[in-house]
Design a protein around this nucleic acid. Structure first.
Lengths: 213, 213, 213, 213
DNA sequence: AATGAATGAGTCTTCATTCAT
DNA sequence: GATGAATGAAGACTCATTCAT
C-alpha cells in the first residue's frame, strides 16, 4: 500500500481523459496515442508519468478508490436517523456516486467482468468489501431494532443495488430509446434516471426489508 | 434480414471459443491469433469464414439472438398459469439463460457499455425491446386481474432483473470471496447462484408486484 | 517454344478479364480473386488452367504475340504500293492495333518498364524485333528507290511511332481533360484519337522520310 | 495546398529508394518491407514518416512536381532566343529531365496508365497542364513571327515529345539489345540516348514546325 | 523534467496456391 | 475435369514503450 505522490495537473488531465476513453472503448480499445492526443500531452508522457498504460489504470483506480471510501464513511457516521432512512441515504449516495462517476463505474463493470487477479482486481475487491460490510452493519442495526425483517440476504441486496444502478448507466442509450427520451438533453436525462433509480430502489428495499405494506 | 447459411462445425467452434475469449478479455483484447490457436484452426479461417473479426462478433450475436428469442416466446405461450407464476417462470428463464450463456451475456454487458451504434448495438436493442414488451404484457395481464398493484415501473423492474443477474455473473469472483466460497467447484457454485438469484428475484418481484405481505 | 493447346472458352474469358484488370490495376495490383470473380469462374481455375498467375500472364502474351505477328506479316506482303504508302499502311496498322488492344498494350508498357528478364520480357523483345526489322526493310526499300532520304534512324522512328501511340492511350484521360473532351462518348473518342494519331504520325513520317516540302 | 515540412535526410532516403523500387516493380509490387530494407530503416518508419504507403507516393510526387515546375519556368523566362531555339531548349530540358529522373518518370507512366482519380492523378494532370500551356505559348510566339507553320497540333506534338522520350527510357533494355549495346556502361549509354533523343526530336520538330527543308 | 524520434512486436487481413473430393 | 475448402506466407499498419537529448 505505497503512499502516493500527489498528482500533478497534467497527470489528472491524463487520468480524466483515460477514464472517459476506457469507459467508451475499453482499456484495450484505447491507445495511448488517443489519450495523449485528447489530453493534449506528448505520447511519451503516459509511460513517463505512470510507467505504463496498465499502471495508469491502477493510478486511476487508486484515485477513485480513495475518493469513494473517503466519502462513504463520512455519509453515515454522524447521522442519527431511523435505520430505513439510513438505508435510503445509502441508496442515494450510491446512485449519486455511480451517475456522477459514470465513466469510472463503467470501467469497473468491465474490469470485474474480466475478473483478472491484478492490482485493479484487488482494488475492486476492496471497494466491494467495504461496501458490503457497511450495508451489512446497517441492516443488522435495523434488525436489532426489530424494524427490519430477519433473514435478509445482504449480498443479494447489494447485487440488486449495484446491479440495477450499473445496468441503468450501462444501458442508458437503450433506456432512452425504449422510453422515447432520445432527444432529452443530457443534464435533464441524468436527473431523470437519478430520480427513477432512487424511487425504484427505495421502494424495493423498503418492501424487502420492512414490515410495512 | 438475410437468411444465414447453417454454421459448420468449425465455425461453431470458432464462435464458441471467441465467446469465451471476448468475455474474458474483451473484443479488442482478444486477437484473432488467440482465437485461432484455441479453436485449433488457421488464423486465416476467421476472415475466411466470417469476413472479419467484427463480422465474427456479429455472427455470434445473430446466433445467440435467434436462440434467445426462439426460446423466450416458447416459454410463456402455451401456459395457463397465474400471473405471478408466469413472472416466476420468466425470472427463472432469464436466470437460466444468463447463467448458461455467461460468456455471451458478459459480452453483451461490455457491448452495451460501449453503446456503439453498430450492427451489434442494434442486435442488443432488439433483444431488449422483445424482453421489455414481453414482460410489460405479462404485468398488464396481472394488473387487469387485480392481482398486481397498479403503477408498476416495468422498465425499472427489467433493470433490476437483468442488472442483478448480470451483476452476479460479472462479479461472481468477488461473490465467492465475500462469501467464503472460493473452493466450491464450478458446477456446484453455478447451482448455488442460480438458486440464490431465483429466490431473491422472486421475492423482490412478489413484494413489489403483489398485495400479499 | 512449346506448342500451345488451343484455349478453351473459359480460358479465353479468364485471359480477357485479366487483360482488362492488369491494364487498369497492374499485375501485382490485381488479385486472382478479382479475376475469378469477374470472369465468373472458381478461384482455383487460374492455377488449374494456367499453373500460376505468372503463367497466365505468359499465356496472355503468347496469345497476343501470335495475333500481332500473324496479322502484321499479312498487312504488307501482297501489296504493290509506293514506299510512303506502305509506311502509311504500317502506321495505320499500328495505331489500329494499339487502340483496339489498349488493355494489352498498356500491360506491355508496364512490363517493358519493369524490364524483367522473364518469359514475358522475351516475348516483348521478340515483338519489337519483328517490328523493327519489318520497318527497317520498308525504309531501305524507299531509300533504294531514292524517294526516302538517306541516314534515317529507324530505331528512333520506331520510338516515336510506338511512343506517341502508347502515350496517347496511356494519357487519354488527360488528353480528354486538356482538350475539353470529357463528355464525349468512348466510341466517338476512340475514332477521334485514331484519326488524330494517323494524321499526326503520317505527317511526321512524311516530313522526316521524304523530300517533299 | 498545404505547405510541407522540409524532408529529413532519412525521409529523402526512403523516397529515393521507393522511387527506384516503384519504377522497377510497380507500386503494388513493392512492399514496405522492401523499401525499409533497402533504405536501411525500420518498417514502421514509412507509416511513421508518411502515414501510409500511398501517402509516401504522394510525398514523392509533391517533391518531384515542385522540382520540375520550379526548373521549367526558369528555363525559358529570361532568354532572348529565336523561337526554334527556344523549342530546342525545351526539348533538351525535357530529355534531360526524363533521363535524369528516369525512375520517377517511369512511375508517372505507370500511374497515368492506371488513370486513377487520386491525389497522384491530379498531380500528374497539373504537370501536364503546365507543360502543355508552356509549349503552346512558345509555338504561338513562333507562329506570330511567321517562322512556324500555322495549324500545329500542339497536343500531338507534346504526345510525341513526351511519348518518344518515355518510350526510350521504358524500352531502353530492348533498345540496347536491338542496337547491340548490351555491354555499354550505363553512364555512356545514358549520354548516347540523350544525344539520340535530342537530335531525333529536334529534327522532328524542325521538320514539322518550320518552313526550312 | 520533459519530449520528439524511433522501434520491434504485434495487429487484422489478403494473398496465390494446394488439397481432398 | 473441376471445385469448394483450407492454408502458410506475406501484406500494410498500429501498438506501447524506449532512447537521446
Amino acid at each position: 500500500m505505497e503512499k502516493q505522490e500527489p498528482l500533478s495537473e497534467k497527470q489528472i488531465r491524463i487520468i480524466d481523459v483515460s477514464e472517459r476513453l476506457f469507459a467508451e472503448k475499453g482499456f484495450e480499445g484505447t491507445s495511448v496515442r488517443d489519450i495523449a492526443h485528447e489530453a493534449d500531452v506528448n505520447v511519451a508522457m503516459i509511460s513517463y508519468y505512470f510507467g505504463s498504460k496498465e499502471k495508469l489504470l491502477e493510478a486511476m483506480f487508486a484515485r477513485r478508490s480513495a475518493m469513494i471510501t473517503d466519502q462513504l464513511t463520512v455519509v453515515l457516521d454522524d447521522e442519527k436517523l431511523a435505520p430505513i432512512d439510513k438505508v435510503y441515504l445509502l441508496i442515494d449516495f450510491y446512485i449519486d456516486q455511480i451517475i456522477r462517476n459514470q465513466h469510472f463505474h463503467k470501467i469497473m463493470v468491465r474490469e470485474q467482468i474480466a475478473g483478472r487477479d491484478s492490482s485493479v482486481g484487488k482494488a475492486i475487491a476492496k471497494i466491494k468489501l467495504t461496501n458490503q460490510s457497511l450495508i451489512k452493519q446497517l441492516i443488522l442495526e435495523g434488525q436489532k431494532k426489530k424494524v427490519f425483517k430477519p433473514r435478509i440476504d445482504v449480498s443479494m441486496m447489494m447485487m440488486t443495488l449495484i446491479g440495477t444502478a450499473n445496468q441503468m448507466i450501462s444501458a442508458q442509450q437503450h433506456y432512452r430509446i425504449l422510453n422515447d427520451l432520445e432527444d432529452m438533453p443530457d443534464e435533464k436525462f441524468e436527473i431523470l434516471i437519478q430520480k427513477k433509480l432512487s424511487v425504484h430502489l427505495k421502494n424495493l428495499f423498503k418492501a424487502v426489508l420492512t414490515y410495512e405494506s
